[in-house]
Amino acid sequence: MVAHKQELADLMNLTSGDQKHDPSAFSTMGVLSVLYDRILHYDAADPQSEDRDRFILSKGHGPLALYAILAQKGFFPASAIENFLHWDGILGGHPDRKRVPGVEASTGSLGHGFPMAIGVALGLKAKGNQRRVYVLIGDGESNEGSVWEAALLAGDLGLANLTAILIDNRSSTRNLGNIAAKFEAFGWCAATVDGRDEDALEKVLAAPASDRPSFVAAEVLPYV
């Protein structure tokens, strides 16, 4: 495991909560690392700065990896992770934007964060703000109808300041088929990459389409 990943794992291990090894958390680690290390523009000391890219964990599940990244980047002290899921802690089983610095939206009920991200992207456009919105959805989450409402809408609007990243760890009960092709059919610029290949992730995330929303299917197949 490379150094920064080990650091994240160590941060996640600060909690003894049963959910710390949630596959949902580990499946997002590569994408989150690339986003927060190489792609997103932000200032942990000023988490509400207008001059920031917005990241929304739409699926809300497995937030420990996000908490570890945010702690690593200085949004809040790493000691907060010791109280993951604790009564006196700020870090719950799904992220709460009112309690956790750096969390843009409170999510957890599947299929909410993606359409919220469209609203954020439209809001940035209305304000003339050039920053981007990144939203992470899950393959299981993609069973929700609202995900497909959002895919249809953002594609039809040509919302070029939006990037959706789907973590495909084969947790979906239904067979999603070629999900990138489905987004492409809705008007997105779509690609499929290995979700553990950070250079490949960086390459595709750093070069979004200029005339339509961008979609990345990050395959994180279970280890066998």
Partner: peptide
């Protein structure tokens, strides 16, 4: 798409609208 309409509106609210 009323579910998306409401969530999208919340996203606009997150941006101060």
């Amino acid at each position: 798409m009323e579910q998306t309409a409401v969530s999208l509106a919340a996203g606009l609210a997150l941006e101060g609208f």
